[in-house]
């Protein structure tokens, strides 16, 4: 008989194995309770995203205003020489 055939026969027998009886319900609920307590102090993701978006818009408004006052330092270097330079 082929090795694979023997293995398949072994598998058919193995399928009948009675597996262990466990009750994890209490342990699962306890772990879920602990995780919920841990998460209770945290800001939900949607809130965090919202707050970040508001903060980003405020910064954008201020930076647009500031942009107008930014002058090119290179131009400022040649400003006093405007009358002297031939171009």
């Amino acid at each position: 008989m082929d090795a694979i055939k023997i293995i398949e026969k072994l598998a058919k027998t193995a399928q009948k194995e009675k597996t262990l009886q466990i009750d994890v319900s209490k342990a699962v609920m306890l772990e879920i309770g602990l995780l919920r307590q841990e998460n209770a102090g945290m800001i939900p993701f949607e809130w965090f995203a919202g707050i970040s978006a508001v903060a980003a818009s405020i910064i954008t408004v201020f930076s647009l205003n500031a942009w107008r006052y930014i002058a090119d330092p290179f131009i400022q270097l040649f400003m006093p020489l405007q009358g002297v330079l031939p171009w």
């Binding site: 072994l10 598998a11 027998t13 193995a14 194995e17």
Partner: peptide, 8 residues
């Protein structure tokens, strides 16, 4: 079955 499962 238990033995077969163990071998497999």
């Amino acid at each position: 079955p238990g033995k077969a499962a163990e071998i497999l």
